[in-house]
Each structure stands twice: as C-alpha cells, then as structure tokens.
Amino acid sequence: MREPIIECHQLSVGFDGVKVLDGVTFSVSEGDFLGLIGPNGGGKTTLLRVLLGLQKPLAGRVTVFGGLPGRSPGRIGYVPQRLFFDREFPISVRDLVLMGRLSKKKLFQRYNHLDRVRVDEAICTAGLERLIERRIGDLSGGELQRALIARALAGEPELLLLDEPTASIDPQMKITIYDLIEQLKERLTIVLVTHDTSLINRYVTKVAALNVTLELSEPGITSCGERFIASVPQNSAFPNL
C-alpha cells in the first residue's frame, strides 16, 4: 500500500466572499505524478498555496504528510512561477539554489559542506553546470526555470510542487523542462499545475481538471492504461473559475 501524501476533502477556498475553490476532493499517493489543469484564474495556484500552508481554507480538510499544511517544510520542494521574480536581483545561480537548503537549517546556522554538495548535485540534475556563477538576470527564461527547479531539489524533497513551469517558454525549451520533470518522476511525488494541456498528456500519470468542483475518478472507471481523467462538472455561476 502506497503512503497517501496529500489528502484533500471537500476543500473550499475564497477571498472576500468569492469562492475560488469549492468542494475539492482528491488525494495524491507516494510516487504519483498529478497534473492539475484548468483555465487561468481557475484556482490552481491557490490550491498549491493551500498545500504549502500559505492560504487558509474556508472549509474542508487538508493534510500533507499526515499533518496540517505548512508543518513539513523540509519535505516539500516548491517551484513558483518564474515570471514573479526581479531579474535585476544581484544573485548567482549557485546562491539561488543554495536558498533551497533553508528548510534544512536552523536560525544562525550557516551553510556547510553538505549544503554545497547538495547544491552541486541539484545544479547537475537541472543541467546548469556551465551557468553556476551566472547572475540570474543573464539567464534565459528556460534556464531560470531550471534554476528554480534546482533550488527545490537542493532541499532533498519527497514532494515537488510545480506552478506553471512552462509558461511563456518557447516550445523547444518546454520539451527539455518536461524531460527534466520526467526524470524526477522516478524518485519524487509530483504535483504539476499548468494550463498547457497539450504536453501534459505525454507525461503525467494522473490528471485532475480544476474548476469550481473537482472530482477525481478512480482507476477502472475512466482509465486508459496508467492514466485516468477526472470528470469536471462545470458550474455556470462561476464560468471563469
């Protein structure tokens, strides 16, 4: 029996009285690769924020690694959207990736040899060896995206949460990023959020579509080999959500 890693039951999230997510129920087990798809503004990022403990749900029950969200920082690797970053920030790829070790460190503890070894490994996995001293402002969009993935990997996570890793990246780069994620899928549990449905089909083992209501059917009901698709009742009250 594989360990359940994320369990969401009847989850509702909202801002200022408007519900972004309503009655979401799904679970992710060890080794799963869940692709969360849905339109822009459909609450995909919000769902990730709930899983990270950054956003409190209005109702429902969420557990991550058997506890409340936000209680197991050292076990989760988070890859936020690349477009939110200040490209002018004076930081090299190495120092950016080193930030991934923060969750393993206590206050006043300094980075040591082990941290640097893990950083080098993560940079190797992401294929950024030649760019290690490069300032992030001098990276291409795809390279920065891989650096952010390396940062998440440096913390040796068991669960990887990726938010739109291929947004605004040229098609050639998209494939290499998915190849990198494909390679990680062997050893990590992955939740990938995207509105890019064309590529996701080739890679993920589970797809969940996120609108106002999200249901995940079990294997055997709508299964096609390893993969199965969630059914999505459209709520006409919130056509954009």
Binding site: L54, Y78, F89, L102
Partner: peptide, 11 residues
Amino acid sequence: SFDEEYAAVSG
C-alpha cells in the same frame, strides 16, 4: 528579500 513566499514555505 528575494522571495518572501519561498522563505515562508521554507519555515
């Protein structure tokens, strides 16, 4: 300074 959200996620 770089990424307050990631800092929070890191505990």
